[in-house]
Deep mutational scan, measured.
Amino acid sequence: GTEDLKEEAKKALKKGDKERAKRALKKAGLSEDQIKKFIKEVL
C-alpha cells in the first residue's frame, strides 16, 4: 500500500538512493511537488 511505499522511500533515502525513493513515491501516487517535499522532509 501507500504507507509501505513511503517506508520504502524513506529507507532508500537514508541509503542515499534518491532514484529508488522517487520510483516508490510515484507508485504511491504522489505528484512531483509532493515527492520533492517528501524528500526534503526526510533528508
Rank of each mutant, 00 (worst) to 15 (best):
E3S: 10
R23M: 06
E8N: 04
K14M: 14
L30M: 12
S31Q: 04
K18R: 13
R20M: 12
A21T: 02
S31P: 04
A9I: 07
E8K: 07
F38H: 04
K40W: 15
K40N: 14
K40M: 14
A24P: 00
T2G: 10
F38A: 05
A24Y: 14
E19C: 07
F38D: 02
A28K: 02
K18D: 09
E8R: 07
K6H: 10
K36P: 06
R23H: 08
A28C: 05
K40Y: 15
G29R: 02
K26W: 04
I39V: 06
R20I: 08
L13C: 06
K6N: 04
E19F: 04
K36E: 15
E19Q: 08
E32P: 11
T2Y: 12
A24Q: 08
E32K: 08
K10D: 03
K18F: 15
L25V: 00
L25N: 00
D33S: 10
K37I: 14
E3I: 11
A9Y: 03
V42R: 02
K36M: 11
I35S: 02
E7I: 09
K11S: 10
D33H: 07
K40Q: 15
R23D: 14
S31D: 12
I35T: 04
I35G: 00
E41Y: 07
A12K: 02
I39S: 01
K6I: 15
G16N: 06
L25T: 00
I35Q: 03
G29C: 02
K10Q: 06
L43K: 04
E19L: 08
E8W: 07
L5D: 04
D4E: 14
I39R: 00
K36A: 13
K36L: 13
L30I: 02
G16M: 05
G16R: 03
K26L: 10
K6P: 03
K14H: 11
A9N: 00
R23C: 10
E7F: 07
A28H: 03
E32R: 07
G1N: 14
E8I: 12
K14C: 11
K27R: 11
R20S: 14
I39Y: 05
E8H: 05
L5R: 03
G29F: 02
K26N: 07
K10L: 12
Q34A: 10
K15T: 12
S31M: 03
K14E: 12
D33F: 04
A21C: 07
A24G: 02
F38P: 02
E3K: 10
L30W: 11
K18H: 15
K22M: 14
E19V: 08
